[in-house]
Design a protein around this nucleic acid. Structure first.
Lengths: 200, 200
DNA sequence: CCAGAACTGGAGTCCCCCGTCCGCTTATGA
DNA sequence: TCATAAGCGGACGGGGGACTCCAGTTCTGG
């Protein structure tokens, strides 16, 4: 690839990251191009579909999710690992509107994106098992409850990111207290919520 | 008003109710008109703005919210009243996507809609106070947490309404357990979440 | 240095939605 | 019955976003 093309590619990625974070995933392509200081054609040549742009932009954030699961598994206290994993992913989600949408959306053609998400899900299931065996996490917590948490957390919006983050933290704190073993109440059965929700 | 005009008006209202419930608040006006079997002009003549249509469609549901608060206050067990109020409003919200959006959205010109919502908020604050005084609801529950719950619950989506309802019920059950007095943990401070979030 | 391939940006096309205008139709009540 | 006002629907202009085409520009290897 020519050097100037590479430069433009990076500029587009930066612009898209910013735009997605602030305005969500359906920001106009033209707006991204303008912000990047390139023409629309350049954007489309590099990323033929919106989807390809999205997967490229959020690839590293997704990797962050994976390492976050590893951190949770490495924590000597399984319950604390579980809590910090949820806290971190919810914080990521609420700070970056685009990441939240990308994470919760199914991309029919982005195989590796979906694969990474699946891997994150499996890792999280391990975190859950470990936390349950240690006695910190209530036994009727279902791995599908992760989707529940993420969807609920994704619903949090506010005018400023700071307020949204504070609200999210409070929600997560409530939920984590409900998830702890010392919680006696019974629950309705888990619903088969899919983490990724088809576009449309 | 002429009899046939009245009939068309009712048809439009029905069509809009259905459309909003399934596809959310930003369904094209033309789609509503088509579903109602009328021309676009008829729709616009009866409801000059989308907002006027929305407020008309959801007026009775909003009234349902108000009576729901009254029910909660009438319950001899304050804690149970609090729980059932939250359960009912969350169920309404998750079954009807449009209602959720309408409830969470500020309409600059719909004074009575906003007024009704404010009244519901005040009533709910009374429910909260009563439940706290009875010792069922933890003291650090903040009335603004209602917005938190509704936003979180609004985030729940699934392919079928039944699944969404099941998921919502489970979320609400978790949260109610966290709200109960027997819950010992500390919380981050409440965030100044506004219930109504401006359009745009 | 320069030929040519790689690259570029903006103009152009297509499509969808909004909201209005206008000529035709239909209910109404005298 | 019929004059008339109320009501009707489809066509139309405007605006915005997705995606493409092409003539001009810029990098790069020999």
């Amino acid at each position: 690839m020519r050097a100037d093309a590479q430069l433009n590619r990076d500029r587009i990625l930066d612009a898209a990251r910013d735009a997605f974070a602030v305005r969500g995933l359906d920001v106009p392509m033209a707006a991204i191009a303008r912000r990047a200081g390139v023409g629309v054609a350049t954007l489309y040549r590099r990323f033929p579909t919106r989807e390809s742009l999205i997967t490229e932009v959020f690839a590293d954030q997704l990797a962050g999710c994976l390492s976050l699961v590893d951190d949770a598994l490495a924590d000597p206290d399984p319950w604390r690992g579980f809590c910090s994993a949820i806290e971190k992913v919810c914080a990521m989600q609420v700070i970056d509107r685009g990441f939240s949408a990308a994470f919760l959306t199914a991309f029919p053609d982005a195989i590796d994106f979906d694969k990474a998400r699946t891997r994150a899900e499996e890792g999280f299931a391990a975190v859950v098992r470990r936390a349950q065996e240690s006695g910190g996490l209530r036994a009727d917590f279902d791995p599908a409850d992760l989707a529940l948490i993420l969807q609920a957390n994704a619903g949090i919006t506010a005018d400023s990111p700071a307020v949204a983050l504070a609200a999210s933290r409070r929600l997560v704190a409530y939920l984590l207290q409900a998830f702890h073993t010392n919680q006696a109440g019974s629950l309705p059965p888990p619903a088969p919520l899919a983490l990724q929700h088809a576009i449309g």
